[in-house]
């Protein structure tokens, strides 16, 4: 169920470093097959990497349960929080995540910046992946000035070589503060309400098929769907004519579409600025597509 960003880097580094990436199965309703994940985790497993919330189906994974399995086998747990951190309260300690990453652009912040949380002990063990200014404490000639000795800075600066994206960081900080002022439990409640309402209304339409689970106890804020007689791109362009933005295509998660046996999908998603009235309008627009029958 992973976004390509949680597949491609692993496949690239697997080729370089000679390890194998194994994939846990997904059930027909888009939920994770926990038994399969447990069976595929062994003492050879180094890291388990999982999205907290699927960006296609909105399914919320039980990260705590998976982290427990990973840690039992001595593996690290990495969580892709890009689709969860903007939409619900997330506590890295409660999840027992070793790493958790999320993006600014999905939470009212700017593009090109994100956050990687890691447990301090891991940050201290890890080597920097880039070299430059700011990430060192000292660079000085040694002995006869034929070489330089360097001493690394403390984390997180150890990983922040060069002039950082200062504007992005300031803007993302403001986005975080804004969401915190609203309260992430309020954000989640609002989105759950909208998702429930939209699912109920979309199920009234004969020519619309919802993909994956519709149980909002298992998912949040995302509804993947197809419109009979229209490709996902047609559906998106049709809605676009009415000023309604949905996404179409693979959503950077092609393997999940293979599991759903879909060429592509349309995706309605909600955030704090959406309203029930907008969903009513969306349904009216989708009704117009019934003329295609």
């Amino acid at each position: 169920m992973e976004h390509h960003s949680n597949i491609v880097p692993w496949e690239i580094t697997a080729k370089i470093n000679g390890f194998t990436v194994r994939y846990a199965n997904v059930n027909r309703d888009g939920t994770l097959n926990y038994e399969d994940l447990e069976n595929k985790t062994s003492n050879k497993t180094k890291i388990v990497s999982l999205s907290h919330v699927s960006n296609v189906s909105g399914v919320i994974n039980d990260v705590q349960r998976v982290a427990e399995v990973a840690h039992e086998h001595g593996a690290l747990m990495l969580v892709d929080g890009a689709q969860s951190v903007p939409h619900m309260p997330v506590d890295v300690r409660e999840l027992d995540a070793d790493f958790l990453a999320f993006s600014g652009h999905k939470m009212l912040g700017p593009t090109g910046i994100g956050v990687l949380y890691a447990k301090r002990t891991l940050l201290e063990e890890m080597r920097p992946f880039q070299g430059g200014g700011e990430m060192i404490k000292e660079v000085a000639f040694a002995g006869a000035r034929e070489k330089c000795d360097i001493s690394l800075n403390d984390p997180p600066w150890k990983f922040e070589a060069g002039t950082p994206n200062i504007c992005g960081a300031v803007a993302l900080n403001e986005a975080v503060r804004y969401l915190q002022r609203i309260g992430m439990d309020q954000v989640q409640a609002h989105e759950c309400y909208l998702t429930n309402y939209a699912i109920k209304r979309m199920q009234e339409l004969n020519n619309v098929t919802l993909h994956g689970t519709t149980d909002t106890a298992l998912k949040c804020s995302i509804i993947p769907f197809s419109v009979r007689g229209l490709s996902s791109h047609d559906a998106a362009l049709f809605c676009d004519n009415y000023g309604i933005m949905i996404r179409s295509g693979f959503h950077c998660a092609q393997p999940l579409h293979q599991i759903f046996n879909l060429m592509s999908s349309a995706r309605a998603s909600f955030y704090i600025y959406n309203t029930r009235e907008e969903i009513d309008r969306f349904i009216e627009v989708l009704k117009e597509t019934e003329q295609l029958q």
């Binding site: 490709s231 791109h233 047609d234 362009l237 049709f238 676009d240 004519n241 117009e288 597509t289 003329q291 295609l292």
Partner: peptide, 25 residues
């Protein structure tokens, strides 16, 4: 035409859709 928005067109052996918003697939 569907809802005055999607226009299904044919030209030679091609079938395509034109949208009033100024896009085509």
């Amino acid at each position: 035409s569907i809802a005055g928005i999607i226009h299904e067109m044919t030209f030679k052996d091609y079938t395509f859709r034109v949208y009033s918003s100024g896009k085509a697939i």
